[in-house]
């Protein structure tokens, strides 16, 4: 009984953790090229989910909805880049933090007024009836989320390694100045990264919406966790976010079972501070030697 409970807790927690990881991955994409992240990423997830839901309600087939949602996410990502990030990066200021928060606020308010303040279900063809796997209850819906997370991250990595555009991305990430000398436009690459990041956010929204439901606040709790996962893993850690995400998710579950549900987040937070204290660039991040 006991091991079974632990296994169930770990699996449920890990699934949430994968979602954190996917959103965290979106942070990484923009950080790699521009050393900036979108603090309104949660609103991107939410707006894309609402948009996809609207497509479904207009009778669009499921595949079309996914494409539409991804395009919408990419467009929002580009908008954030243009309106919030580009100017701040040119001025070498940290204005992007505030501007991206502000755009998030705008998106939140727009969603509240356009789609309403209520949480709504997101229809899905995949069943939510539990299956038994080694005594653990898991739904096909949850499995689809896990598969989706890996598929999205895999595809993006493939894109980065196998296509010319993707290699330009990697070049700018590795050394922006050198890449520019080679004739790669950093501005374009940063746009690309924000577009991609928007798509990843949209995919995250579509994947989790059937579980979390769609509402203006659907991502506000997720986004802080995702941020934590991204930073603790290291903002340049690649697949490191998956491990940290799973770990954090499982830890939260186990804490709320064994310590008490009110303390759910506490051990994670303490570990997080400790992890940062020991490895400021993240557990899987690349440590840099101070040079002058």
């Amino acid at each position: 009984m006991n091991t079974q409970i632990i296994a169930q807790m770990v699996v449920s927690g890990a699934l949430m953790g994968l979602v954190y990881a996917l959103i965290a991955y979106g942070f990484q994409l923009t950080y790699a090229t521009s050393k900036s992240i979108n603090f309104g990423q949660g609103e991107l997830v939410m707006l894309s989910a609402f948009f996809s839901l609207t497509l479904l309600n207009f009778g669009a087939p499921y595949w079309l909805m996914i494409i539409g949602g991804l395009l919408f996410g990419a467009a929002l990502g580009l908008l954030v880049e243009r309106a919030a990030v580009r100017l701040a990066l040119q001025q070498k200021s940290e204005g992007w933090i505030l501007l991206s928060i502000i755009l998030g606020l705008l998106g939140f308010s727009a969603a509240e007024n356009i789609w309403g303040r209520d949480d709504r279900p997101f229809p899905t063809p995949i069943s939510a009836d539990a299956l038994h796997v080694f005594g653990i209850n898991i739904t096909p819906l949850e499995i689809s989320v896990a598969i989706g997370v890996f598929a999205v991250m895999g595809l993006v990595e493939l894109f980065k390694r196998k296509t010319l555009l993707g290699k330009a991305f990697e070049a700018v990430a590795a050394d922006r100045d050198a890449a520019e000398l080679m004739g790669i436009s950093a501005t374009r690459t940063i746009m690309l990264s924000y577009g991609l990041s928007g798509m990843v956010a949209a995919m995250a929204g579509i994947l989790i919406a059937p579980i979390t439901t769609v509402g203006p606040t659907m991502a506000s709790a997720l986004i802080l966790k995702a941020f934590a996962v991204a930073v603790v893993a290291g903002l340049d850690s690649g697949f490191g976010v998956v491990l940290i995400g799973i770990f954090l998710g499982a830890l939260e579950s186990l804490t709320s079972f064994y310590v008490g549900s009110g303390w759910r987040e506490a051990p994670g937070l303490i570990l997080l501070i400790l992890a940062l204290a020991v490895r400021p660039n993240g557990v899987f991040g690349k440590a840099a030697i101070v040079k002058v």
């Binding site: 950080y31 992240i37 940290e94 933090i97 802080l224 941020f227 934590a228 930073v231 603790v232 903002l235 937070l269 997080l272 501070i273 940062l276 400021p280 660039n281 993240g282």
Partner: peptide, 12 residues
Amino acid sequence: LAGPQFALATLS
């Protein structure tokens, strides 16, 4: 810590 890392530490 600096930048996003410090932001996260204070957020935590």
